[in-house]
């Protein structure tokens, strides 16, 4: 175990994992409180189409994934506004369409093999120096945007109509939130994988919600749980020789289960 931590790849994975755990959880607070969990899953899965297109074109798959995630966020908003459909229906359409495109692109790409597996399910070995740089840039950038628009994002999440009456640019703030979700998904893909990324966004924030009735406290608790989940999950996956992404998500889920039990008095509170 200690030996493993001495390896560069493990240090890189732990650092990237901590950053991504914090990032996902902070954005996750807004996702959970706005009822956007399915949107998170939709944007997460949309990245599959983007990653596959990256393989086909021979460019960095994360770049094409950003385009797909942002495109889905924008497209869902457009379809919801222009038709009488509910948002979850629009997400359902984009979810399937982007996955189908991904499968089509992969069929056209010769020999994608091992790399793809890392994107789909996450892998510590797949965390490159570039991925670490991405996490090092993306996390502070997204957190800075959240800090700047902290009270506006809170107001829009709690009471969008009142926020509109107060003169806040509600639609633009909602779009900003979706852009943050899209960027977060891309930042987390290599750690937990496309399939599980939305769980890392939702679970720590949901656990934090169980532990407090105070928004500001939730904003500290969620990233703490997120970072603890990724670090503990990565170490556990090395120790038990299990898939890292799945282990991280299961640890985060365990945090949620314990938090929910504490809230309901099933477990004694200290």
């Amino acid at each position: 175990m200690l030996e493993l931590i001495g390896h560069t790849f493990m240090q890189r994975a732990l650092l990237a994992g901590t950053l991504v755990g914090i990032l996902c959880a902070v954005v996750g607070v807004y996702v959970v409180l706005n009822g956007l969990s399915f949107m998170g899953a939709g944007i997460g899965h949309a990245s599959f189409g983007g990653v596959a297109l990256g393989f086909l074109l021979g460019v960095n798959p994360l770049l094409t994934a950003v385009v797909f995630c942002l495109g889905t966020a924008w497209g869902v908003g457009l379809v919801t506004r222009k038709t009488s459909l509910r948002e979850d229906t629009a997400i359902g359409i984009f979810f399937a369409c982007t996955m189908a495109l991904g499968i089509l692109f992969l069929g056209l790409t010769p020999g994608y093999g091992v790399d793809l597996f890392g994107y789909l399910f996450g892998s510590i070995l797949a965390v490159t120096r570039q991925d670490l740089w991405l996490a090092l840039l993306l996390t502070p950038a997204v957190l800075a945007v959240v800090a700047l628009f902290y009270k506006e994002l809170l107001f829009v999440s709690f009471d969008p109509e009142m926020a509109r009456v107060a003169g806040l640019p509600v639609d633009r703030l909602h779009s900003l939130l979706l852009v943050l979700v899209a960027l977060t998904v891309v930042g987390a893909i290599k750690i937990v994988g496309i399939v599980l990324v939305s769980a890392l966004i939702v679970a720590p924030a949901a656990a934090a919600r169980q532990l407090t009735e105070d928004f500001h406290r939730m904003m500290w608790l969620a990233p703490a749980i997120g970072a603890a989940s990724t670090v503990a999950g990565l170490l556990l996956s090395c120790w038990l020789d299990t898939a890292s992404g799945a282990t991280i998500v299961l640890v985060a889920t365990a945090f949620f289960a314990v938090a929910a039990a504490l809230r309901r008095g099933i477990l004694p509170t200290g």
């Binding site: 409180l33 009270k151 809170l154 009471d159 107060a166 806040l168 105070d214 928004f215």
Partner: peptide
């Protein structure tokens, strides 16, 4: 939304946000 994690003082302060 009654289930939103906010304290009364925070809700009242929102009146100032505009």
């Amino acid at each position: 939304d009654r289930h939103f994690p906010l304290r009364v003082a925070d809700v009242v302060m929102m009146g100032r946000y505009g």
